[in-house]
Structures are given as C-alpha cells and as structure tokens.
Design a protein around this nucleic acid. Structure first.
Lengths: 111, 111
DNA sequence: TGCAAATATGAACAACTATTCATATAATAT
DNA sequence: ATATTATATGAATAGTTGTTCATATTTGCA
C-alpha cells in the first residue's frame, strides 16, 4: 500500500461519501435482504421512491444523495420506464460498511 | 449486519474521522514500514513531532487531529518523558484503509 | 395534447469543520 | 529557578456540506 498525496485525496473523497447518515441508510437499504451466507449474493435493485419510503427521507434528499453515491462509484443506475433502479456497484462498498460496522460494535464493549 | 439508527450514527462518526486528508496521512504514517507479509506486524510508534515532520503539517494541526483520532478509537497514546508515542489502535483501521485504497485503485482503471 | 408519476436540479440557509495563530501546560536538564 | 523541548488547547475564520423548498425534466398513458 504505497500512499502518495494523490491517493490520499482519492481516499478522502471516497470516505467522505460514505461518512453520511443518509447515504449510509441508502447503502444499507440496498444491501439488506441479501443472504450473507450466499457466496454469490444477488443484486438488490430499488427505485428512488422505494428507498425514500424505506429510510424515511424526502424524495429530493434521496435523489441528491444518490447522485453523490453514483458519482463516487458506490451505486449504479438502471432506467426502466419512469423509474430508475439503483443498486450497489461493487464489493468494496459492502466491505467498507462491514468493517465499519464491526468497528462500532467493538467500541460498544469499551463504553 | 442489522443496522438501526444508533448504529448508523456511530458508523457515520467513525467514517467521518477517517474521511480527512490530514488524518489519513497520520494513519498511513503509522502503518507504514509494516511488513505486510508478516502475519503478526509489530506496532509502529511515532511521537507528534516525527509525524508532523513526516507528513509536512504543523505541530498544532497534528496534535489537534491526533486528539480526534484518539477520541474516535483509531489510535492510542503512550507517554515517555516529554514525548507521547502514538500508534494504531486496532486492526479495523488498517482494514478500512486497505479496502478504501483498493477501491480508489480500481476506479483508476475506469477513468 | 394534457395529465400524472417518478426523478432530477438549483438556490438558499444553517450547521459543521479543518486550519492557523497565539498561548498554555508539562517534563527535563543545567 | 530558568531555559528548552514536546505537546496540548482555545479562539477565530474560511470553506464545505446536508437539507429543504420550489421547480424542471422525463416517461407513460388517456
């Protein structure tokens, strides 16, 4: 892992995208209902309105944040009629959330 | 991975701490010089001034950010005379950086 | 063409935060 | 005691960003 300033900046940008409650809810919403014991988990696709309802945030906010997630390479979109289905883009997103999740659980023990 | 609002907030806090260039430099500075092929990597300890010099940021800034990292459970401190040696606290920090690193490298291929 | 549903967008504001500067504290040695 | 080294702290500021509100765009359908 050789880290120069350019890499630091990109890592910062990537982590900034993940470091937001609304975006984390969107991501967890898109990775829920996955069978973690399945070694080839199938893709969860949800449209903007579904996500909005499930996480309890406004349509506008969800749309704004989905754009951030999409520009950052966290999710991808598929158009079908008037709806646009979003899903997680790659495995790294899952991994970042998984490890962060484990980290906060471990901290609970020390509180 | 059951994620409620309380967990989301803690994940947000954790990721926010990582999502900063100066703090990433400090962390990478503390995990450099590790032999990645070593299954039991030894601890790297560095004092504030060393870190300040190595990453090219002021002593004050490094001290401020080390406090953030310490409060967030990313690093720990050991006092020895007038110097205070900082080191990475747990393996999750390494993992978050490793996966984020891989994520930004993968994105380079798509640019 | 007109209407409804789904999503995106732009402006505006409030809240947060990274950095700098000056200063304070703590430990050590002379 | 005084000086020096190492680190921490507090205030102030400038830049960033999450959210809301209003509105625009796009698609499908009667």
């Amino acid at each position: 892992m050789y880290i120069n300033d350019n890499v630091i900046n990109k890592m910062q940008d990537t982590l900034k995208i993940a470091a937001d409650g609304t975006r984390l809810k969107i991501l967890s919403c898109l990775l829920n209902e996955l069978d973690v014991s399945d070694s080839h988990p199938h893709l969860i696709e949800k449209c903007v309105n579904d996500i909005s309802l499930q996480i309890g945030s406004s349509q506008s906010l969800v749309s704004h944040q989905l754009k951030v997630l999409k520009d950052g390479g966290f999710v991808k979109a598929r158009k079908e009629g008037t709806k646009i289905y979003y899903s997680l883009k790659d495995e790294h997103v899952r991994q970042i959330m998984q490890i962060t999740y484990e980290h906060v659980l471990e901290d609970d023990d020390n509180d």
